[in-house]
């Protein structure tokens, strides 16, 4: 049976596009997600500090 190369190239093209979207979005989400996590942690620490100050006052 003759090996079919044209559809292989088409599917590999689709694979490359989906790969670029996947890893491109992943890098963006990892960067932005880190900022979001640090914000939550900072807010929680501030909340805890305020609670502590109120209790000691």
């Amino acid at each position: 049976m003759e090996t079919v190369m044209t559809p292989t190239y088409i599917w590999i093209g689709i694979f490359i596009v989906s790969g670029v979207l996947f890893w491109g979005t992943a890098v963006w989400a990892i960067y932005r997600g880190f900022i979001d996590i640090m914000d939550i942690v900072t807010q929680e620490k501030e909340k805890a500090n305020r609670k502590k100050q109120n209790t000691s006052a």
């Binding site: 689709i14 694979f15 596009v17 989906s18 790969g19 979207l21 996947f22 979005t25 992943a26």
Partner: peptide, 16 residues
Amino acid sequence: TISSLTFAGRAIIPMF
């Protein structure tokens, strides 16, 4: 919307 951009890769990468 942003997550959807990765969903093709989520399937196609392991299929490859």
